[in-house]
Design a protein around this nucleic acid. Sequence first.
DNA 1: CGGCCGATTATCT
DNA 2: GATAATCGGCCGG
Length: 198
Amino acid sequence: MSINQRDFYARPALAVARDLLGCRLVRVQSGKRLAGLILETEAYQGEEDLGCHASAGLTPRTSVMYGPPGYAYVYFTYGMHWLLNAVTDQAGTPAAVLIRAILPLEGTTAMAKNRPYRALQPGWTDGPAKLTQALGIDGIFNRVDLCDRSDGLYIESGERWADAMIEQTPRVGLNSVPEPWRSIPWRFLVQKGAIDVG
DNA sequence: CGGCCGATTATCT
DNA sequence: GATAATCGGCCGG
């Protein structure tokens, strides 16, 4: 397994969102690997994308998206949830990919401790806030370098799913965003039948 | 099983 | 002062 390097992220969010499916999200917590296969992502591309936080322009919160690719953009929403994005595209072009679901593969016991309530129930990591809880990711991970193993949060290359196994749908939760951004199919997910769930 | 709604606070207007 | 890239509980059928 090798860590995705800067050039992997230095592309438009749409391409990175597609290629992150099947990669392995790794969080090293207390010396242990907590990791899972990425099954669902969403692309947010540019100030003109009214679903993207950067559509509000350069602010302290969105500034990380304007920086170089390969860094984490972790933000807080709905008063209680942390969501994990990977910054993509070149510096100066704000873009990011939201990681929405993983299949837990390593360190599931530790993940269950991080997320005791629904641990190991069906679907316990199939939401963007659920997976950050399971992996113990919060605001202190904002701006960490995903290309650097020493930060304890990175993404390894994985197997590439066939296009036939990948579904594209509109992004979730953008009900107050105008068209065409509300309906543009920039959400990527691995079809359920493609996954061998235990 | 599906749909509605409250929780709770960082960020921007 | 309003809003939010969500989750989980509770309700009704």
